[in-house]
C-alpha cells in the first residue's frame, strides 16, 4: 500500500504554489507572443501618432516633477506606462473568466492553500508580466528618444510594481462579477476607458480645471489610476509622491480584499454563480 497524503502546510508549500501559478502565467504568455506585440502597439501608437498630432494643442507648463518645459511625448510617457499596466490588469481579469469557463478555476480554488494566498499568487504573477511589458515599452521610449532620465528606469520599478498590483487587484475584483467572456467588452467601456481618460495620463489636472471641466477634474483627482500614473511619473525623476503612493496602496488593499471576499463561497458573489 502506498503512503497516503499527509497535509502539508507552511510557507514552503505556499511558495511552491506561488511559483506554480507564476510559471503557468509565464508559459501561457510565452505561447501568446502576440500579446506582447499588442500590449506595445497600443501605447506606441499613442506616443508616436497622438503625441505628435497634439504636441502643440496640449501645452504643458512647468509642474512637479518637471523642472523645465518638456515635450508632450515626455509628459504622456508615464501615462502610457500606466496604460500598459491597466490593460494587463484587465487581461488578468479576462484570464480568470476564461479559467472559470474552462473549469481551471475549480482546480485553483480547490488547491490546499488559503484562498487569499491563491488570489495573491495570481496577482503577483500577473503583475510581474505587466511590469515586464511596461519595461518593454520604456525600452521603446529609449529607442524613440523620448527624454526620460535613465536612472528613472530603475527608480520606477517599485512604482510600477505597486501600480501594477493595484490594477491587477481591480482586475481580480472585476472577474468576480464578469461571468462570461462575452461581457468583457463592457469592462472595456465601463472601466478601462473612463479610468484612462479621466486621469492625468494625457493631460495634467490643472488643464482640466482651467478648461472648466470641473466634474472631470474631480473624477480624475479621485481616480486611483491618476495616482498610479503620478507615482510612476515622479519615480521616473527619482522623486517620491507620498499622496499618490498612499492612494495606490489603499486602493490595492480595498480592491484585493473585495476580490477575496467575492471569491469566498460563504460570503461573496461566487456562491450565487449557479447550481452544481
Amino acid at each position: 500500500m502506498s503512503a497516503l497524503s499527509v497535509p502539508r502546510s507552511g510557507w514552503g508549500t505556499r511558495l511552491r504554489a506561488l511559483y506554480a501559478i507564476s510559471l503557468r502565467e509565464t508559459i501561457k504568455f510565452w505561447h501568446q507572443r502576440g500579446r506582447l506585440l499588442s500590449a506595445l502597439v497600443r501605447p506606441v501608437l499613442w506616443l508616436l501618432v497622438f503625441a505628435a498630432g497634439f504636441q502643440n494643442v496640449f501645452g504643458v507648463s512647468i509642474i512637479p516633477p518637471y523642472e523645465t518645459y518638456i515635450e508632450y511625448q515626455v509628459y504622456i510617457a508615464p501615462g502610457l506606462v500606466g496604460m500598459v499596466l491597466l490593460f494587463n490588469g484587465m487581461q488578468s481579469s479576462l484570464a480568470m473568466v476564461y479559467d472559470r469557463e474552462m473549469g481551471l478555476m475549480r482546480l485553483l480554488l480547490t488547491a490546499p492553500q488559503p484562498r487569499w494566498f491563491l488570489l495573491f499568487s495570481k496577482l503577483v504573477a500577473g503583475t510581474l508580466l505587466s511590469v515586464l511589458q511596461a519595461y518593454a515599452f520604456l525600452f521603446l521610449c529609449l529607442l524613440f528618444r523620448v527624454g526620460l532620465p535613465l536612472s528613472g528606469y530603475l527608480y520606477a520599478l517599485p512604482a510600477m510594481l505597486l501600480g501594477g498590483m493595484m490594477l491587477g487587484a481591480l482586475g481580480l475584483l472585476l472577474s468576480v462579477y464578469v461571468k462570461q467572456l462575452e461581457n468583457f467588452a463592457g469592462t472595456m467601456n465601463f472601466v478601462i476607458f473612463p479610468m484612462f481618460f479621466m486621469s492625468t495620463a494625457l493631460y495634467p489636472l490643472w488643464k482640466l480645471e482651467e478648461s472648466g471641466a470641473t466634474a472631470v477634474y474631480w473624477l480624475a483627482r479621485i481616480n486611483p489610476f491618476t495616482h498610479a500614473v503620478e507615482l510612476i511619473r515622479f519615480a521616473l525623476y527619482g522623486q517620491f509622491n507620498g499622496v499618490a503612493c498612499a492612494v495606490v496602496l489603499v486602493a490595492l488593499l480595498v480592491f484585493f480584499m473585495l476580490a477575496v471576499w467575492g471569491y469566498d463561497p460563504q460570503r461573496g458573489m461566487v456562491k450565487k454563480s449557479g447550481r452544481g
Binding site: P7, L23, R24, K28, M102, G103, L108, Q113
Partner: peptide
Amino acid sequence: ACMGVVFQQPSLDLDLTVQANLNFYARLHG
C-alpha cells in the same frame, strides 16, 4: 490536502503539455 478530485467538467489547461499540467498541480499542492 487529503483529497483528489476529478471534476465532471474537464479542468486541464489545454495549452500546456501533459507534464506541465501535472507539474502545475503538484506544485500547487506543495
